[in-house]
């Protein structure tokens, strides 16, 4: 009785033995190409949008966000490099290329490639998580440049009049006078609006801050 299937399986085993290096190389090439694209995309987005997305955040959060994105980019880059390494391994480096040693070297190379790929996968996953965290921070951290004092974004001015100088955000300037909101501080518990009559205004100068 001939169990021909047993022979076919034995042949399949030999075939798999020959092919496993090619199999992991193909996997590694897929990861290499994907990660190269992903890293490129992330770096382009970071360069184009990175600064916009963090301006307006409070200082501390801005650093947290920048650190998250930088670490994420580093992880992605490392993962991409590992996958390149996995796809272009140097089989047989440092061993005699005789059959017996090469047989072991192929097995070593398969394992090394898979380890490199596993590292690449972990780095990619961690990097993507960090990017998501950074983007999420951008959504939930309040934008201080828009929040805060009511008339946000209005320019600050220094108004010199007969009665002295007033500094604050410009609220209104018309035929009756100039209205300025003086910020809190310097004896004022809260921001107050001060009206300087038109007749007494000598000079209105824009300033960076009061």
């Amino acid at each position: 009785m001939s169990d021909l299937q047993k022979k076919r399986l034995a042949q399949l085993g030999q075939q798999l033995q020959q092919d496993q290096l090619a199999v992991v190389r193909r996997q590694a090439e897929g990861w290499r190409n994907g990660l190269a694209g992903l890293t490129g995309l992330v770096s382009v987005v970071l360069v184009l949008k990175g600064k916009d997305s963090v301006t307006g955040m409070p200082e501390a959060w801005r650093w947290v966000c920048a650190a998250l994105l930088a670490i994420a980019f580093g992880l992605l880059l490392f993962g991409a490099l590992r996958s390149v390494q996995a796809a272009n391994g140097e089989i047989g480096a440092g061993t005699w290329l005789n059959a017996e040693q090469l047989f072991g070297a192929v097995l070593d190379e398969v394992e090394r490639t898979q380890r490199a790929l596993a590292t690449a996968r972990r780095c990619t996953a961690a990097g993507l998580c960090l990017i998501v965290a950074g983007v999420f921070l951008g959504w939930v951290v309040p934008d201080t440049s828009a929040a805060g004092t009511g008339t946000a974004g209005a320019p600050s001015v220094l108004v010199t009049s007969a009665g002295g100088t007033v500094c604050g955000q410009l609220v209104l300037a018309d035929a009756h006078g100039v209205v300025v909101r003086e910020p809190a501080g310097k004896g004022r518990p809260a921001a107050t609006e001060v009206t300087v009559p038109a007749g007494s205004v000598r000079e209105v100068v824009p300033v960076a801050s009061c």
Partner: peptide
């Protein structure tokens, strides 16, 4: 006849 090495290793660092 080799022991298959495809797939992740079980030990520390694979």
């Amino acid at each position: 006849v080799a022991h298959g090495v495809l797939g992740p290793g079980k030990g520390l660092w694979g």
